[in-house]
Design a protein around this nucleic acid. Structure first.
Lengths: 365, 365
DNA sequence: TGGATTTATGAAACCGTTTACATCGCGCCG
DNA sequence: CGGCGCGATGTAAACGGTTTCATAAATCCA
């Protein structure tokens, strides 16, 4: 493993000169630089990033902390982070599968000193002071934080308005008895979607407290179970808003088993817009969430924060969630699949934007 | 940011003693150690990992290089890696979305010096010498390598036997005209599945070259397109083996549009066993791949390699792929969904193991 | 009782860089 | 012609730890 000294010796210069070739090319004579680079290549030399980090106090790496990850949503978030980070010349130190605050604290502690910042999606109950502990050392960008944390940036999907648009749409189709299957208790996204559900009902003069709300956990299997609960209910709801697509898929399976038709007997709407949503039978009406964009935005905020250094003001960004109307809600008379193109059926979706989301916080952009 | 010197000064000892508290607790007097730890806690001191890495030449981190990631498979692989790595006290430096060899080379170059080893799933055409370049510096574990690379460990899903079992099963059900929709050209997994398809046909006395093979790319949309191609074909195949579940899902959507029933008119089998496979209509018969286990095994190999140091022999492990029989192949008369339990329909799947896969290479375990 | 051994600690070298500061030669200008 | 400025390079001190070797005190054993 060649070091800077090996190169310097071979080139007959001092290590400072070699170092300058990599950092301030213009401080060194062009011929010398070229010669050094050639020798470096021969020796297969590359500056040791660890040593660089030690002196510069910059690692060009940031940490990514995620909750226990399942499904497409997280993989898309990571994808978005990865792409943006690489574009900016950063590496990412990933630690996922955290389900409690101590986990997060330990993981971030292990990262501290290796990273320039942290992008984190806190698991449900992560305490503010765990975050604060990290935030005191490096910039923090929160993904979908339940509540904004002082001194932290954030990017959040507008779950509330997305959910509201979905439920309003159902009501607009004439449904008066709309049920919801929620996400995991304590999960911020899930809570916001539930709030959106409630407010949509209230806005249309329906009583949110009278509506059936079945607890779920974002997984197919509980959607399935919820479907059975729902079918036993009298009067039976004519529409169901599922907190995410997995839940909706489980639900639809349960309805199918019971011989209940979607959307004729019960309309279903999901949330997330997973890739297969358009290929289901019936194609699933859902709220599109740009998970990849979420990750990408987080990286941009992070890089801006690192650039700004001390005089960096927290920014809070919101990503719109857009309703994609397909068949499962009953709005499309002709099944979208009948009008497919070569790209598959997805091309025919109808998009409905909710209200323009509020830009929370002091985002100057 | 407190350093080891701050702690040493505050405790009235030398930095060596403080260092020993963290590395060789037993070399230092118990009382002294306790006092130092207390002071360290007050100062919120934690050894700087960068500095540690510089002297010890170990980072307790390994790099993970993945191709452009989409869908559940990759997210499960990462999950498996993450869990196993954390258990072993390692961090992971992730870089995904690589689609060509130069990408991989650049990414690994950027990682070198920050990591103790690399786990990589090479994109299609990654040249051996790119890998060799890395392997000369740190241990490498390959995920699903097309061909074994000298000096590298590997973990591979037994795509070949999984595919063969799936297709044999279709033939066993009486199908004589079985088509396949392949994965991306040049993709090793896809190629192995195609080989398995061919061999199953040949073993049953059918002509592999006569079978319809439609090119695909692992995505729903091409599965959909392939479905249309297939439907126009005379004689029409009575069964289709899709290279993965996404493809199968797209395919089934196309068949549905055309009014073609699954499995009555055409039987379908997929590969991967994504979470929703059991919730589809009809429930998808597919080959289960333990992606999480794949990642976990890779980590174990890596940790063993790091432990072994120089006298470390490459090991090659194979992960079985197990056929999960559901409805879409037509083997289950009563739809599984009718016999569901509270956990959803998945409980009723029938598993069929293929031949015991060969343990390739010199795996002593 | 005194040398050998053990235990606890310190001093200092080292890991591979970056960078502030010093040095040196040279052309330029007054 | 002499001082100045500048471009090119070298010297050496960090950065924050680990670890070898030395040392001093305490313990042991004959």
């Amino acid at each position: 493993m060649a070091t800077i000294r090996d190169v310097a010796r071979a080139a007959g210069v001092s290590i400072a000169t070699v170092s300058r070739v990599y950092n301030n090319q213009d401080l060194v004579n062009a011929d010398t630089a070229e010669r050094i680079l050639k020798i470096a290549a021969e020796l297969d030399y590359w500056p040791n990033p660890t040593a660089q980090s030690l002196t510069t106090r910059r690692t060009r790496t940031f940490g990514v902390l995620l909750p226990d990850l399942f499904g497409e949503f997280y993989s898309e978030v990571i994808r978005g982070i990865d792409l943006a980070a690489r574009r900016g010349g950063y590496q990412i130190l990933l630690s996922s599968s955290h389900s409690n605050p101590e986990d997060v604290l330990m993981a971030s502690r292990a990262m501290l000193g290796r990273i320039d910042g942290v992008i984190m999606m806190a698991p449900d109950e992560t305490s503010i002071d765990t975050v604060a502990r990290v935030r005191d050392r490096v910039p923090v960008v929160l993904l979908n934080p339940r509540t904004p944390v002082e001194g932290c940036h954030s990017v959040a999907v507008d779950n509330f308005h997305g959910a509201k648009a979905a439920v309003s749409h159902l009501i607009g189709l004439g449904h008066r008895d709309v049920a919801m299957i929620t996400g995991p208790e304590g999960n911020g996204d899930a809570e916001d979607r539930l709030r959106g559900f409630r407010e949509a009902l209230a806005d249309e003069g329906l009583d949110p407290d009278a509506a059936l709300v079945i607890p779920g956990d974002f997984r197919e299997t509980t959607g399935f179970g919820a479907g059975e609960v729902l079918l036993g209910r009298r009067p039976r709801p004519t529409a169901v808003f599922a907190a995410n697509d997995s839940t909706a898929i489980g639900l639809m399976a349960a309805l199918r088993v019971a011989g209940c038709r979607v959307p004729e007997d019960i309309a279903v709407v999901g949330f997330d817009n997973v890739t297969i949503a358009g290929y289901l039978n019936p194609a699933l009406t859902t709220v599109h969430v740009d998970a990849c964009g979420l990750g990408g935005r987080a990286v941009e905020l992070m890089m801006a924060a690192l650039e700004a250094g001390a005089q960096d003001l927290p920014r809070h960004q919101v990503i719109q969630a857009v309703l994609k109307v397909r068949q499962s809600c009953g709005a499309q008379k002709t099944p979208a699949l009948k009008r497919h193109s070569a790209d598959g059926p997805a091309g025919d979706d109808v998009d409905i934007r909710g209200e323009t989301p509020l830009r929370s916080g002091g985002d100057p952009s």
